[in-house]
Nucleic acid binder design. Structure first.
Lengths: 161, 161
DNA sequence: CGAGAGACTGGATAATTATGCAACAAACGC
DNA sequence: GCGTTTGTTGCATAATTATCCAGTCTCTCG
């Protein structure tokens, strides 16, 4: 399944790119743009990606267009998290409404700080130990969504569910 | 037609208000919220208002919700606060008679200054740290009212509401 | 005053988006 | 290995949103 995960990640990256560059007013447009970029996906998949990436559909000058989340546009605090995940191997697991992340010993606080700076909507609070971070979500559904978003930063899903 | 114009304006104001205060995930929800606020309108009209006001439908926490773009109604010396909230994501929470706001690291003082300049009646005093601002109200009732007003500026309510 | 233009709205419906379901692939535990 | 669990996707379709069109109201001009 590593294949599928990698494909998904690449597709979502491409998705962010095309929506920020072009004016795409429907998901069908997005599908076409992705196809031109070499990614095959259906409208259903795009719809799910939109949720996971937190994209918005804005109404502007009488028309509509998809856009990246405003927080991500000005290079919001998420850049730090992204860099962290590039520098260190981080694994994420689900425990009901809790997302449990494990990184290298001594780096948990830095990771938690980066998470806080990212202002992830689903996160109610974070708690860091030495190499482990707990992220509390309001419920299992949100925790699941949160972990999904984190994988877009390069965090690897770990079993133990 | 003066009537119709005024009605439209009032409705759109109410629309901005309900959308920034509640989590409305469909236009049908919006219609119901408006009706509770004393405004009759159909989904078709709401759809048009959404375009006119530049509202966005954001995907968050795995669900969807309408939100103000970053523009809202006019105010007094509150313009600075409004602009601040447009530029930075600010979250507000309630702690008895205290309103706790969190913004991006290093911006708390600017936020507090903007709050002071707004001369909010309910605020007895403000105290800024690095990314957090405390606003003291005389009592819980006032704190609650204050947070409600702040949400009309685009400050997101944090916590179970 | 009556005709015409322009603004706003709702009903009906076309267009678009979200989701239940099933299929399949990978990872885990035994 | 083999059964179980989790994750991703497409298809079909339900749910939601945008828009066409007609009706009403008001203002303006002749």
């Amino acid at each position: 399944m590593r294949d599928a995960l990698a494909r998904k990640h690449h597709r979502q990256q491409a998705l962010l790119r095309v929506v920020s560059q072009q004016r795409l007013s429907t998901q069908a447009d997005v599908v076409r743009a992705l196809r031109r970029a070499g990614f095959a996906a259906t409208q259903a998949t795009v719809s799910r990606d939109v949720v996971e990436l937190g994209l918005v559909k804005v109404a502007r000058d009488g028309t509509h267009a998809y856009a990246p989340p405003s927080a991500a546009a000005p290079g919001g605090g998420m850049e730090r998290l992204r860099r962290f995940c590039e520098d260190y191997p981080v694994e994420g697991a689900l425990a009901t409404n809790l997302v449990v992340l494990r990184s290298l010993p001594g780096t948990a606080n830095a990771l938690a700080a980066a998470l806080d700076a990212s202002r992830l909507d689903e996160a109610v609070g974070t708690l860091a130990g030495d190499d482990t971070v707990f992220i509390a979500a309001t419920n299992e559904r949100h925790a699941r969504a949160l972990l999904g978003r984190l994988t877009t930063f390069g965090i690897a899903r770990k079993g133990t569910k």
